[in-house]
Design a protein around this nucleic acid. Structure first.
Lengths: 183, 183
DNA sequence: ATTGGTTGTCAGTACTGACTGTCATATTTA
DNA sequence: TAAATATGACAGTCAGTACTGACAACCAAT
């Protein structure tokens, strides 16, 4: 399953043969079919097995300290951590959305969940008087899109874009948002 | 060529047969091969033909008015305009980077060019006293990544994410950056 | 009217890829 | 040790796919 994910993330579902997967995994094509039945089922099982769980909810409700900069930093770091751990799955879901429908939704479910958390966080912060009055939905969206874009950009060219490391990007961008949203 | 781009953007290079392309284009598979020689060459010719030109440079050097909000708005809108006009090409270059190397670079050349423009813009604005002191490189990166993420997110699910239209996103996010970077 | 060029049809080639059956051989389990 | 089970090597099926060749029909220009 790991071999399948690796190869499919790189070359796409149609770009990899079951032969290739079996060889990479160090077993015969036959046993591969004995275990999974079909190529499609292999992908689906692999996807289910390694799909990132709902790690967001737990992590936040405990660690939030209601300081904008600290919290945004935590959220941003956690986001990149989870996304990078699952970047191959995400790559597959992007590449194969036209061929194997339904995969995209499964990878977007949890980011959407994070969005809800962020929106509620912004609302609460506003009520605490620690945020200027804006549309929390759009602000959360902006923040998430910024991190999503950065994640996407680093997906392939792992040499960081302009000699800017991911962490300096996170720190600086959080600071930007903090400066913009603090009263 | 348009049919090829359409189909490949949806299903990927290996997900489309020359038959299918010919049918969609309304001609026989034979003439397709007579004109292009091979499937790969078809994609390459199509890619070259419809690849977005260097629209950035011209547009800015003329329209910049050295007001942060106005200029960022222009930049953001232009960016989304160009990216959306070329979204199929971009989709292909993402999907096929593992199979047909070199395509990704061609679609990233111009965004990189825009990055340079933005960096220089921020430097100039700082010297004019209209920007706080920050690393212009990282700020430009943040701004671009935010727009890149928003573009990517709208690629497939064209129903906008949370009932937030692209334009309200642009306006609000530009305002956020303006508030953060203005002295 | 003839010629030259372009196109569609159809059959066909060479190859690949997903998937199966068979049987001998390892590996685990009782 | 013996039985149950998982694995591998190999050959093979069947459909799809990139691509070619032969031939006829069409369309323009001379």
């Amino acid at each position: 399953m790991l071999a399948a994910i690796d190869l499919m993330a790189e070359k796409g579902y149609n770009g990899v043969s079951t032969q290739e997967i079996a060889n990479t995994a160090g077993l015969s094509e036959k046993t591969l079919f004995r275990r999974f039945g079909s190529k499609q089922n292999l992908l689906e099982k692999a996807f289910d097995r390694f799909h990132y769980a709902e790690e967001f909810t737990k992590l936040f409700n405990e660690k939030i300290v209601w300081d904008l900069q600290t919290d945004l930093l935590l959220i941003s770091r956690t986001y990149h951590d989870i996304m990078n751990r699952n970047r191959k799955m995400i790559m597959i879901s992007i590449k194969e959305e036209g061929n194997l429908p339904g995969f995209r939704e499964r990878t977007q479910k949890h980011p959407r969940q994070l969005m809800d958390i962020l929106i509620n966080y912004f609302k609460a912060m506003y009520e605490k008087g620690k945020l200027i009055r804006t549309d929390p939905k759009v602000q959360a969206l902006s923040f998430m899109m910024m991190n999503y874009g950065a994640f996407m950009n680093n997906l392939d060219s792992h040499d960081n874009f302009l000699n800017v490391s991911l962490d300096t990007f996170i720190i600086e961008s959080v600071q930007t948002f903090t400066r913009a949203l603090a009263p």
